[in-house]
Simulated scan of single mutants.
Amino acid sequence: MSKVKFYYDPESLSYRKIERKKRKTFAYISLFLLAAFLFSFIIIFIGNLYIESPKEKALKRELQNAQLQFELLNKKMDEAEAVLANVADRDNNIYRIYFEANPIPEEQRKAGFGGINRYKNLEGFDNSELIIETNKRLDILQKQIVVQSKSLDEITVLAAEKEKLLTAIPAIQPVSNEDLTRMASGYGMRSDPFTKVRKMHWGMDFTAPRGTPVYATGDGIVKRADAGSSGYGKHIRIDHGFGYMSLYAHLYKYNVKRNQKVKRGDLIGFVGSTGRSEAPHLHYEIWKDGTRINPINFYYGSLTAEEFSKLLEHASLENQSLD
């Protein structure tokens, strides 16, 4: 209960009760309510600025987690880009050089994406720059991986072809050293045994007894096994593919037939002296793209360095050929 206040009236010489005017009372009440409203507003405003709600805290945690994930993703992309760059370097400077293929241009490997803005839907957010940059890097990385993947597919095909080439090239001596009497004549200008005139000798002559085994010098298909070519007598021609063909002449007899597939080292015939021949020997030729080339360069698969040096020495002598 509020206290009652009095004042002394000198005229009546008595105490009178103080009466508060209604208008003044209303003003006091209004002022109090206004002050209370303002105080409440300030408290709420400051609270909203400095005090987070549970929902705001949860959203803030999610945003921080998303930023952390983007940072981790960028670090992983750094590592992936480094690995891919290493693979690309090996691809251009090792694999493609070995398989005689042109390297992939750098601008093709690292090409971006032109045309329309692919990231317009990612604009307008607090972290749009981070999100857009990460997506760009990811898209380029994916494109580089596709380019590299196709390149490795091509390298795989080239490797398979290279393996076929290595097995197809005539790379061994057609007559084993144990069976040789001597290397009678090499590739080059030689004296003809019948006319005694110097002329080009297009192969190598291996002197060996009649019936000595003759071996295929590379994988291929027998294209001829007959005596229908002038001067060669009974002879065999093997198509090795890749432009290579080997010829074995003056044979005693065959051990293969036309269109038969042979492997390097297979027994294909026997030394003889058929056709234009002075004595039992094997006349051996190698053709590349229709041109006869020196067989001396194709014995790396069966001779030691010492044996090859001796063969090279004998082959270079300008002696008389046997055919």
Rank of each mutant, 00 (worst) to 15 (best):
E79D: 10
Y244G: 01
E318M: 03
I145H: 14
I296M: 07
F37C: 12
T291W: 02
N135R: 08
I268E: 12
E11K: 15
N294C: 03
D78L: 09
G218E: 13
G241V: 04
S316L: 03
N65V: 06
R182W: 09
S230G: 14
M183A: 10
G124F: 11
D205S: 05
L68Y: 07
S185V: 06
A225H: 04
L166G: 12
Y95M: 14
S277E: 00
R109F: 14
I46V: 13
A160P: 03
K57A: 11
Y254N: 00
P193F: 04
F99V: 07
E178C: 01
A227S: 13
L282Q: 02
V87A: 10
I132T: 09
F39Y: 07
M77C: 02
A168H: 08
N255K: 11
V83C: 07
K76H: 15
E278Y: 04
K120Y: 00
D266V: 13
D78W: 07
P10V: 00
W202T: 05
E19F: 13
K110L: 04
E107I: 08
Y50H: 05
E133Q: 09
G269T: 03
Y284M: 02
I46K: 10
F39H: 08
A35I: 06
A315L: 03
E318W: 02
K17L: 13
R276L: 06
L73H: 12
S128L: 02
I43M: 07
Y215A: 10
H235C: 08
R23A: 08
L84Y: 04
A315C: 03
E56W: 02
I131V: 15
L251C: 03
G203E: 06
E285V: 08
Y95H: 15
T207I: 03
V222R: 12
T304S: 14
D91P: 05
A184I: 01
V262P: 06
K21Y: 08
R118H: 08
Y232I: 09
A208F: 06
D89F: 00
R198S: 13
G272E: 01
F125I: 13
F194K: 15
K263E: 00
I51M: 06
I18A: 00
F113H: 15
P213Q: 10
N74M: 06
E163D: 12
L247A: 11
K199R: 11
D226M: 13
Y252S: 14
K17E: 15
R16M: 11
H314K: 13
V222I: 12
A58W: 07
G188E: 07
E107A: 02
E163R: 02
L84G: 01
I238L: 05
F194Y: 15
L166T: 13
D139A: 14
K60V: 05
G188L: 10
R258W: 02
G231D: 14
K24Q: 07
L63Q: 14
G228C: 06
T25H: 13
L317F: 11
I43Y: 04
Y215W: 09
L72R: 05
D153F: 15
T167W: 08
Y244F: 05
T212A: 00
H250W: 01
Q69V: 10
E285H: 03
R224W: 00
Y187R: 01
S14R: 12
K199S: 14
E161S: 01
R182P: 12
P209N: 11
S321F: 01
E71K: 13
K150S: 06
E306H: 01
I97C: 04
P213R: 12
L267E: 11
G290T: 04
I116D: 10
L180A: 14
D323M: 00
